Computed example of a mutant assay.
Amino acid sequence: MEPEVGTNRTAVAEFILLGLVKTEELQSLVFVLFLLAYLVTVGGNLSILTAILVESKLHTPMYFFLGNLSVVDVACITVTVPPMLGRLLSHKQTISHDACLSQLFFFHLLGGMDCFLLTAMAYDRFLAICRPLTYSTRMSQTVQRILVAMSWACAFTNALTHTIALATLDFCGPKEVNHFYCDLPQLFQLSCSSTQLNELLLFAMGFMMVGAPVVLIVTSYIHVAAAVLRIRSAEGRKKAFSTCGSHLTVVCLFYGTGIFNYMRLGSEEASDKDKGVGIFNTVINPMLNPLIYSLRNPDVQGALWRVLVGRRSLT
């Protein structure tokens, strides 16, 4: 028999986030590792953003989108990791119902922005390589701003839809969330009311947020690959593949973990795997992005070097 909810639809006022590990020794190790990862991620992405802002050579559409991606990555890891570190320090695992919904909203808002920014970057590479004569008009500053504004609008709609739908569910207990942040699959398992509509909504919105962008990205890169292979210069092909390769690596990491996490609901025994996927989504991907984009990009490397050592290094 289900617990009595009464007039209040949400009997559970707070949830318990079980986190990644249980023993105190391992919690100390997790705290140190995640703190270092957070500092590296914030430092790396802000360095990329600073290089893009101060280096006039990087004032192009591709780096405009990359700068926005860096901001989103910093915000995404900030939504999940600092609260987790705070709980580890205070030895308090609880999070209020409203705070949990807020974290979920911002996590999906920023995750949605990642989806659309990666799509915009693929479209930019398609225009630059396949439509070079009309590139400057098709990817003007106005178009860039419209693409970013539309990305925010779509991501906001997706996040708000899921948050409102989740707020209608009853939570009567248990209240232990087997994760280190609040997310939809784990909260669905705790609801004492039907989540069929929520899961259907997640699949439908997931198709729009993931399916459509993936189709557009794949289509763009099929055309890009065909155009690059027609380039006679080996150096030209190498530069084009290097730029596109960095973006494709980020796309595969981001969409691969996202699809694994949200497209296979209903498996309770997969909860521990969800934690690993969550680490990829919230920590590893944002930390790797600046590294991936700078490792094989001499323009970014040069700009980063000039930011670090100052303008005296300019010739």
Rank of each mutant, 00 (worst) to 15 (best):
M1A: 10
P3D: 02
G6C: 05
T7Y: 05
N8F: 03
A11E: 11
V12E: 07
E14N: 15
L17V: 06
L20P: 03
V21H: 12
E25Y: 03
E25S: 07
L26H: 11
S28Q: 09
S28W: 09
V30I: 09
V30D: 01
V32G: 08
L33F: 10
F34S: 12
V42A: 11
G43C: 10
G43M: 12
S47N: 14
L53R: 12
V54Q: 13
E55C: 06
E55T: 10
H59A: 08
H59I: 05
T60M: 07
F64S: 13
L66S: 10
N68T: 13
T78A: 13
P82I: 15
P82G: 13
P82W: 15
K92S: 06
T94G: 03
H97Q: 05
D98M: 03
A99Q: 09
L101N: 10
Q103D: 09
L104K: 05
L104E: 06
F107G: 02
F107E: 02
L109K: 01
D114V: 07
F116A: 01
L118D: 00
A120T: 01
A122R: 00
Y123T: 00
Y123M: 04
R125Y: 00
F126Q: 09
A128Y: 01
C130W: 02
L133K: 07
L133P: 00
T134C: 04
S136W: 02
T137W: 03
T137V: 06
T137H: 13
R138C: 11
M139I: 01
Q141A: 11
Q141Y: 06
V143I: 11
R145P: 04
C154W: 13
A155F: 13
F156E: 14
T157Y: 14
A159N: 08
L169R: 01
L169G: 00
K175I: 12
Y181I: 01
Y181A: 00
D183Q: 09
L184R: 00
F188W: 06
Q189H: 12
T195R: 02
E199R: 09
L200F: 06
L202V: 03
F203G: 10
A204V: 12
M208E: 06
M209G: 09
I217H: 05
I217M: 10
S220E: 05
H223A: 15
V224W: 05
A227V: 09
V228T: 07
L229D: 04
R237E: 09
K238M: 06
H247L: 15
T249F: 12
C252A: 15
G258C: 07
I259M: 01
R264V: 00
E269K: 14
K275I: 14
V277R: 12
N281K: 12
P286Q: 04
M287I: 08
L288G: 03
N289S: 08
L295T: 06
R296P: 00
N297T: 07
D299Y: 03
D299R: 09
W305R: 14
V307A: 14
L308Q: 13
